[in-house]
């Protein structure tokens, strides 16, 4: 797993992947996103080269673009996608502790999070927090709905939480 962070600039993806390609690597699944002014990358790389070899392969481009690179040996194969069956959207006035509180209740109600993305928007004086979660409801939808109802009861309209099933139609 290649983890990479650096100040955002155009050409990071192209130059990093070019270096990997020329080093004989094959790329797998990736998540790349700009967070604040940083560009972040998490990329599965298949290579015969070990971690120090990969680090050496990437160091010219990492130095040039001032990127922090981190490598971990992992196992990755095809057909490892869990089938997500629930989507949870949360938004409200930004305050600390919100993510911890909500995800703790959801975890206790059987949610395994597969994908989470969040944004801070609104105006400087009153920022708002928006979070989208996709996951697997390991104990079914009912406990998750109960957990969210309890949260909503406790916090009123401080934030809004919506749960919807993801019903995948395979044809």
């Amino acid at each position: 797993m290649l983890t990479l962070v650096g100040q955002d600039q155009s050409g990071i993806v192209a130059q990093v992947t070019q270096a990997l390609y020329q080093g004989g690597c094959n790329l797998g699944e990736a998540s790349m996103v700009r967070l604040g002014g940083n560009f972040t990358m998490m990329l599965m790389v298949n290579s015969n080269v070990d971690e120090s070899g990969l680090a050496a392969m990437l160091s010219p481009v990492a130095d040039k673009l001032q990127l922090h690179v981190h490598l971990d040996a992992i196992e990755g194969r095809l057909h490892q996608h869990p089938k997500t069956d629930v989507c949870i959207n949360v938004y409200g006035a930004d305050r600390s502790g919100m993510v911890a509180e909500i995800t703790a209740r959801l975890a206790a109600a059987g949610l395994n999070i597969v994908d989470l993305s969040s944004d801070v928007g609104g105006v400087d004086q009153k920022p708002i927090y928006i979070m989208q979660i996709e996951g697997v409801a390991e104990k079914g939808m009912a406990p998750l709905q109960q957990a969210l109802d309890a949260l909503q009861q406790q916090y009123g309209h401080e934030f809004e939480v919506h749960l919807s099933p993801i019903d995948t139609l395979i044809m």
Partner: peptide, 13 residues
Amino acid sequence: IGREGCMSVPDYT
């Protein structure tokens, strides 16, 4: 919007 999968495109939705 809905989530789809296809027997001709396995392991992806």
